[in-house]
C-alpha cells in the first residue's frame, strides 16, 4: 500500500522538489532552519506553516471532489468560523468553547451544503455558490464589518504559537490529514466515496447510501474550513471578515488538481492534494523571495501553474511514457510492472 501511494504521488514529489530547488536558487539560505526564541525558524517552516489553511481545505475538498462535487463555500466558511471564534472569545467564552463553536458553525455550513446537494439535488457548484456569496455577509454581520481583535493566549496559540518548537498550524493540518486519511483508507469509506463519484446511480443500486455519504463529505469539508478559519484568525489575533479566506476556495481546488485528482470524481489521493497545497505555497514563497516587482507576482504564478498542469496532462504523460518505453534500460524492467502501471492512469484521466 505504501509503495502504491508513493508511485501515485511521484509526479507531485518531483514538482515540489523542483519548486523548492527554485527557491534555493533564488535564495541560498532557503533550507536553513534554526532554533530561535523557542521556535523553529526558517523558510521551509514558513512553507509548511503558511500552507496550513490550503492544506486543510484541500483535505476536505479532495473528498468532495471525489464524489464529483465541488465546494466553493470554504473561503466564506473560514470567514464565518473566524468571526464566530473571535466574537465568542471577546464575549468572555473560554477559547476551547470558542473553537468548538467555530467548528459547529463550520459543520452547520457543511450540512447545509450537503442537504442542498444530496437531498435537493442541486448541482454542487450552484449549491455551494449560495454560501460562498452569502457566507461572507454572515461573517461581516458577526464582526459588524470591522476587524474583531482578541487577546486570548489560548486561541492565539492555535495560529501563532508553537508546540514542541513547531508552529501549531503545522501540527493541526498534519493531524487532520492523518486522521482523515486513516479513517478513509483503513475502512471501506474511501472506496464507497469513489464509487459514488464514478457512478452515483449504480453505487446506490449496489446498496451504498449515497445521500449520507454526500452529506458527510460536505460536513468534513465544512469542518476543515472552520479549522482553517480559526487558524487564520488566531494568526493575526483578529477576525477579518472582509479578507479571511478570500479566494482560498480556488487555491484549495487548485491544490486538488495539482494533486492529479480528477474533477470528474472517482479515484482520489489526499496525500497528493496535500503535496499540491505545499507546491502552491512553495510557489508563493518563491515569488516573495525573488524580490521581483509586484506586478510580476500573478504572471509568475500563472506560468508555473500552467507548466505544472501541462506536465501532468494525459497527452504529455503518455508521450513521456512512450519516450521511456522506447529507451533501452527501462524496457528491460518493464514486463513485471507493465500491467499494474497502466490501470491507475486510466482511472485518473
Amino acid at each position: 500500500m505504501m509503495k502504491s501511494t508513493l508511485r501515485r504521488v511521484t509526479p507531485q514529489i518531483v514538482i515540489l522538489a523542483l519548486v523548492l530547488a527554485a527557491n534555493f536558487l533564488v535564495f541560498p539560505g532557503f533550507f536553513h532552519v534554526e532554533f530561535q526564541h523557542g521556535r523553529l525558524f526558517g523558510n521551509l517552516i514558513d512553507v509548511l506553516n503558511r500552507g496550513a489553511p490550503t492544506a486543510l481545505l484541500a483535505t476536505g475538498m479532495t473528498l468532495v471532489i471525489a464524489t464529483r462535487g465541488i465546494d466553493l463555500s470554504v473561503g466564506a466558511v473560514m470567514a464565518i468560523a473566524g468571526a464566530v471564534a473571535a466574537s465568542a472569545v471577546t464575549g468572555g467564552a473560554h477559547w476551547t468553547l470558542a473553537v468548538l463553536m467555530a467548528l459547529a458553525a463550520g459543520a452547520a455550513c457543511g450540512l447545509w451544503n450537503g442537504l442542498l446537494v444530496a437531498i435537493f439535488r442541486i448541482q454542487p457548484i450552484v449549491a455551494t455558490l449560495v454560501l460562498m456569496v452569502a457566507g461572507r455577509g454572515i461573517a461581516q454581520l458577526l464582526t459588524e464589518g470591522a476587524i474583531l481583535t482578541f487577546n486570548d493566549p489560548g486561541l492565539i496559540r492555535l495560529g501563532a504559537g508553537t508546540i514542541a518548537a513547531v508552529p501549531t498550524p503545522i501540527w493541526l493540518w498534519i493531524a487532520v490529514a492523518c486522521v482523515t486519511g486513516l479513517v478513509i483508507r483503513r475502512s471501506a469509506l474511501g472506496l464507497l466515496i469513489e464509487a459514488v463519484g464514478i457512478n452515483q446511480t449504480s453505487s446506490r443500486l449496489a446498496g451504498i447510501n449515497a445521500r449520507v455519504l454526500l452529506i458527510a463529505v460536505y460536513l468534513v469539508s465544512g469542518l476543515c474550513a472552520a479549522l482553517a478559519g480559526v487558524i487564520v484568525a488566531a494568526d493575526i489575533k483578529g477576525a477579518d471578515a472582509n479578507n479571511a479566506g478570500l479566494w482560498m476556495e480556488l487555491d484549495a481546488i487548485l491544490a486538488v488538481v495539482i494533486g492529479g485528482n480528477s474533477l470528474l470524481g472517482g479515484r482520489f489521493s489526499i496525500t497528493a492534494s496535500l503535496l499540491g497545497a505545499l507546491i502552491i505555497q512553495g510557489v508563493n514563497a518563491l515569488i516573495l523571495l525573488s524580490g521581483m516587482p509586484v506586478e510580476f507576482n500573478l504572471v509568475i504564478k500563472a506560468l508555473i501553474i500552467i507548466a505544472i498542469l501541462v506536465i501532468q496532462s494525459p497527452r504529455v504523460r503518455h508521450s513521456l511514457y512512450l519516450l521511456r518505453a522506447s529507451t533501452g534500460p527501462v524496457l528491460r524492467e518493464r514486463p513485471s510492472r507493465a500491467a499494474p502501471r497502466t490501470r491507475p492512469e486510466k482511472g485518473q484521466s
Partner: peptide
C-alpha cells in the same frame, strides 16, 4: 504587496525578515 490586509502583511514581513 500585502494586499492591504493584516494576514498578508504578516506573511510578507516574515519573508522579508528571512531574505
Amino acid at each position: 504587496t500585502g494586499d492591504f490586509t493584516r494576514a498578508q502583511g504578516k506573511v510578507v514581513m516574515e519573508s522579508f525578515l528571512k531574505s
